[in-house]
Computed example of a mutant assay.
Amino acid sequence: MSCVHYKFASRINYAIATFDGRHISLRDLKKQIMGREKLTAAKYDLQITNAQTKEEYTDDGALIPKNVSVIVRRIPIGGVKSTSKADAIRSTEPVMGTSTLTDVASASISLAQLTKTANLAEANASEEDKIKAMMLQSGHAYGPVNYGKKPQGPPPPSYTCFRCGRPGHYIKNCPTNGMNASNLALGLKRALESPEVS
C-alpha cells in the first residue's frame, strides 16, 4: 500500500493518506484529507503544496507520487481575497485608470474610528489597521490613566487602617505616621485602651 504524508501548515506532525498504486490524483487526495479531517467541501477547498519543492498542485487531475510530503492549507471556496492597500487600489481602479488613493481611503475606516468599533472582523479596513485597533483596545484598560487612582473622601465604614488598626482614616492619613517603632507601640496601646474611636 502506498501513502502520502500530509500536514496542515499550522500543525507540527504529519498524517498519512493511503492509496493503491504509484500515484494519487489531487482530487482523490483532497477528498481523502477532507474525509479524515471532517471538513465540509461546501465551505473550504484545500491548497496542496509539495513540502520539499514548494510546488503547488493546482490541476485536479495532477498525479502526486507515493511517499511525498505535502503541506495542506484550507482556503475559502472563492479563493483568498487580498487585503493589502495596493491590491485594493488595483481592484477598485477602473479601466481608464482614473482612480486615486482618496477613493480607497474614503471607503475604509480611520484608525480612530476603528478603535471604537466593537466588531473589528466586519469593519471595512485593512488587516494591519484591524490589528493595530485590536492592540489599542486590549491595552486601554492598562493605560496610565487607570493607574494610581487615589481614594477620595472618607473611607467606607468597613475599612480599618492597616497601621494603627482603627477605622475612620486611610493609612496615608494615620495619626501614627512619622512615629518610630517604640512610640508606635505606645500609641497603639493608648489607642486600644481609650474607648473613643476616631
Rank of each mutant, 00 (worst) to 15 (best):
residue 21 G to M: 01
residue 172 K to Q: 15
residue 187 G to P: 04
residue 153 G to L: 05
residue 107 A to S: 05
residue 174 C to N: 03
residue 131 I to E: 10
residue 95 V to C: 06
residue 2 S to N: 09
residue 14 Y to E: 05
residue 178 G to I: 05
residue 172 K to P: 02
residue 54 K to S: 10
residue 32 Q to R: 10
residue 102 T to W: 12
residue 162 F to W: 00
residue 143 G to R: 08
residue 170 Y to T: 01
residue 180 N to I: 02
residue 25 S to V: 07
residue 195 P to S: 14
residue 2 S to Q: 02
residue 81 K to Q: 08
residue 100 T to W: 09
residue 182 S to D: 14
residue 68 V to Y: 08
residue 142 Y to W: 14
residue 20 D to R: 13
residue 78 G to V: 05
residue 144 P to K: 10
residue 177 N to P: 06
residue 49 T to I: 12
residue 68 V to P: 01
residue 37 E to N: 02
residue 28 D to C: 05
residue 122 E to Y: 03
residue 77 I to K: 15
residue 105 A to R: 14
residue 166 R to M: 11
residue 156 P to L: 03
residue 138 S to V: 11
residue 38 K to A: 13
residue 56 E to M: 09
residue 21 G to A: 02
residue 81 K to I: 12
residue 169 H to T: 01
residue 119 N to S: 12
residue 113 Q to R: 06
residue 97 G to Q: 06
residue 159 Y to S: 00
residue 48 I to N: 00
residue 121 A to H: 10
residue 95 V to G: 09
residue 81 K to R: 13
residue 103 D to F: 08
residue 124 N to T: 11
residue 9 A to P: 00
residue 61 G to Q: 15
residue 67 N to M: 09
residue 7 K to L: 13
residue 46 L to T: 03
residue 182 S to F: 14
residue 66 K to D: 04
residue 86 A to F: 15
residue 144 P to Y: 04
residue 181 A to Y: 14
residue 72 V to H: 01
residue 19 F to A: 00
residue 197 V to N: 07
residue 171 I to E: 09
residue 88 A to L: 12
residue 155 P to H: 02
residue 37 E to W: 00
residue 46 L to Y: 03
residue 11 R to C: 11
residue 91 S to M: 07
residue 11 R to N: 10
residue 191 A to I: 15
residue 67 N to Y: 11
residue 38 K to C: 10
residue 121 A to P: 05
residue 97 G to E: 09
residue 24 I to E: 00
residue 62 A to Q: 06
residue 139 G to F: 11
residue 142 Y to C: 11
residue 144 P to H: 11
residue 21 G to H: 03
residue 194 S to T: 06
residue 89 I to R: 04
residue 59 D to I: 11
residue 198 S to P: 13
residue 118 A to W: 05
residue 151 P to G: 07
residue 97 G to K: 08
residue 63 L to C: 07
residue 74 R to N: 02
residue 78 G to F: 00
residue 49 T to V: 14
residue 54 K to R: 09
residue 183 N to A: 13
residue 147 Y to M: 11
residue 183 N to K: 15
residue 47 Q to F: 08
residue 135 M to C: 14
residue 171 I to W: 07
residue 144 P to W: 05
residue 147 Y to D: 13
residue 152 Q to V: 12
residue 184 L to M: 14
residue 74 R to K: 13
residue 15 A to R: 04
residue 128 E to W: 13
residue 196 E to D: 12
residue 162 F to S: 04
residue 128 E to K: 15
residue 6 Y to Q: 03
residue 35 G to H: 06
residue 167 P to L: 00
residue 150 K to V: 03
residue 28 D to M: 04
